[in-house]
Amino acid sequence: MSEVLDNLLYSDEHEWAQQAEGRVVRIGITDHAQHLLGDIVFVEFPEVGASITAGDSVGSIESVKTVSELYSPITGTVTKINETLETSPELINDQPYGGGWIFEVEIEGELADVAGHLLDAAAYRALVGE
């Protein structure tokens, strides 16, 4: 059974979004997604400074099983990547909601205003059959 945190928002593509400081939103993949992928060995990040749109492919995650697209759950500007994952991508498997976050985006306004298409924890649990 995958862990789904109540304080996050989720996309249909299995990314999560969490309000950080100010207008910054932290993005990662869900526990469910990392279980499906298996042992993660490489992350291709979006470029810092890039303007991205919700639903766009912004990178990829490579595991021993497959390569999966990384989609942005929200629109904004990439402000930071988790550089630790460059040498320790397995953190996504170990801590998908902690040290395994992937990138941060600065948004226009509040997360609630730009995330109407995202799922709350209950809806995400229903999506993945939890």
Results as ranks from 00 to 15, higher is better:
residue 17 A to R: 09
residue 1 M to W: 00
residue 91 L to E: 13
residue 88 S to L: 13
residue 38 G to V: 07
residue 69 E to G: 00
residue 78 V to R: 03
residue 15 E to V: 04
residue 109 G to D: 01
residue 111 L to C: 09
residue 98 G to K: 04
residue 43 V to E: 11
residue 74 I to D: 07
residue 11 S to D: 02
residue 5 L to S: 09
residue 90 E to C: 02
residue 9 L to A: 08
residue 96 P to T: 00
residue 104 E to C: 12
residue 15 E to R: 10
residue 30 T to L: 10
residue 43 V to N: 12
residue 44 E to H: 13
residue 46 P to R: 06
residue 39 D to T: 04
residue 77 T to R: 14
residue 35 H to T: 03
residue 80 K to E: 14
residue 110 E to H: 14
residue 68 S to E: 02
residue 127 L to C: 05
residue 32 H to G: 01
residue 31 D to W: 06
residue 118 L to N: 09
residue 94 D to P: 00
residue 33 A to R: 09
residue 2 S to E: 12
residue 8 L to G: 05
residue 55 G to W: 02
residue 90 E to W: 02
residue 83 E to D: 15
residue 45 F to C: 12
residue 36 L to M: 14
residue 48 V to I: 15
residue 121 A to Y: 06
residue 84 T to S: 15
residue 93 N to V: 01
residue 17 A to H: 06
residue 113 D to M: 12
residue 40 I to E: 08
residue 53 T to M: 10
residue 99 G to K: 10
residue 102 I to R: 04
residue 82 N to Q: 05
residue 117 H to R: 03
residue 92 I to F: 00
residue 89 P to Y: 03
residue 36 L to Q: 13
residue 45 F to P: 06
residue 15 E to F: 07
residue 86 E to P: 00
residue 56 D to T: 00
residue 124 Y to P: 02
residue 123 A to D: 13
residue 36 L to D: 11
residue 12 D to R: 15
residue 77 T to F: 07
residue 26 R to N: 09
residue 50 A to L: 05
residue 91 L to G: 04
residue 47 E to T: 12
residue 100 G to L: 01
residue 79 T to D: 03
